[in-house]
């Protein structure tokens, strides 16, 4: 099992252009980051391309990792998620915002892949449980599916303004729960 310290040490060595540390970092973290890319993009070939960009970014930015003050997985997940969302938004611009519901693909993780996940529930899950189901869902959709306010308003059939107020309140509630 690779620990947080192991991953931090790998990142520090990657900052010094250590290829073997980079290879180890990839081995230790790519399945998690690929999961994130695939979840956001819902398309295997795009997720593979973005994952490649993620690691090139990690290679180039490893030297600035420590100033973010993040845990290593937070940093890596944030990079993976941000690049995936950028790709998603670019795709929408290209296709003129065709409803993504149309390209739900079958390469969602299979049952055995799902089964290996979730050893421990993150604290955030308990706090999401305290929110109304739809609101918790909206937060997850914004983070993991890259839904925009427009997407969410459409989904929950409320005006965009209302959606924004809703989500903001949910986020603050979530933060309060996590920090108490």
């Amino acid at each position: 099992m690779t620990t947080r310290d192991d991953i931090e040490a790998m990142i520090a060595r990657v900052a010094l252009r250590d290829h073997s540390a980079f290879s180890s970092l990839y081995d230790a973290t790519s399945a998690k980051l690929f999961g994130v890319c695939l979840r956001v993009l819902n398309n295997r070939s795009e997720a593979e391309e973005v994952l490649q960009d993620v690691y090139v970014r990690v290679w180039n930015k490893a030297g600035t990792y420590s100033v973010t003050g993040h845990s290593p997985m937070t940093w890596l997940i944030t990079v993976a998620r941000n690049l995936s969302i950028d790709r998603l938004r670019a795709r929408e611009t290209r296709t003129g915002g065709i409803d993504r519901a149309l390209d739900i693909v079958d390469d969602r993780p299979g049952p055995e892949e799902v089964a290996v996940a979730r050893s421990a529930r993150a604290a955030i899950d308990d706090c999401l449980d305290e929110l109304d189901t739809a609101r918790a869902d909206a937060v997850k959709r914004a983070y993991l599916d890259g839904d925009t306010y427009k997407d969410l308003a459409h989904r929950y059939d409320v005006p965009v303004n209302t959606m924004r107020t809703w989500l903001r309140r949910s986020l603050i509630k979530l933060r309060d729960c996590l920090t108490r």
Binding site: S30, F34, G35, I77, R118, L144
Partner: peptide, 14 residues
Amino acid sequence: LLAQLGEDVPDIAP
């Protein structure tokens, strides 16, 4: 805070 949502996503080997 939000990266915790990413931690919950199942690992998938690329």
